[in-house]
């Protein structure tokens, strides 16, 4: 009789624990998914999805997966975006040094007319590769919301950091340092 009661109590405890665990699991799932949705970005620590884009002003294409072993800074920008323009000189300034050290800067442009981008590149003297994403596919792939938006990808191809908004010179340098191969 007593054993029966004890047994029942143990069963009840297991049942309650299981029910609460399942429900709390669901809650945690819901909260996390909604927080991720808000940021509308690909999660940090994930593998950067592969893509291939044409390099501006050439017939050459760049495939992300070909750059494995190098750190990659992926910058989404457009000529009509003021903060994007402001950070361009910083990227240009740091590019030669970090290129030596195995970091590539890819600037994915979201303008729709070539001439606008060409003029801009001339004016700013940009030497790092500017890629064309005319159909907005890569932007969609990386779930980019407002620009400028910059992703820093490790030599192993993992997203280390995602920054939305303008970068300062020192911040940029810090991030580039993080993804530079040993």
């Amino acid at each position: 009789m007593k054993e029966k009661t004890l047994n029942k109590k143990r069963k009840r405890l297991i049942f309650r624990t299981a029910m609460l665990a399942v429900m709390i699991g669901l809650v945690i799932f819901a909260v996390f998914s909604s927080l991720n949705n808000d940021d509308a970005v690909i999660a940090e620590g994930e593998k950067a999805p592969d893509f291939v884009l044409k390099k501006f002003g050439t017939d050459e294409s760049i495939t992300l997966s070909d750059l494995e072993g190098k750190g990659v800074m992926l910058n989404f920008w457009a000529t009509y975006c003021e903060p994007c323009k402001d950070e361009m000189p910083y990227m240009e300034q740091l590019y030669p040094e970090y290129k030596e050290r195995g970091v590539e800067i890819l600037a994915v442009n979201l303008d729709s007319t070539n001439i606008v981008v060409e003029k801009f590149m001339q004016q700013y003297g940009i030497t790092f590769p500017v890629l064309q994403d005319k159909r907005g596919e890569v932007m969609d792939l990386y779930k980019i919301g407002p620009i400028p938006s910059t992703l820093f990808i490790s030599p192993e191809g993992e997203i280390v950091e995602q920054v939305t908004g303008e970068l300062t010179l020192s911040k940029l340098e810090g991030y580039l340092e993080q993804i530079a191969p040993e």
Partner: peptide, 12 residues
């Protein structure tokens, strides 16, 4: 998050 937790607590 806190609104969702309120709803979730009602559910539980």
């Amino acid at each position: 998050w806190w609104y969702m937790i309120l709803i979730a607590m009602i559910g539980i």
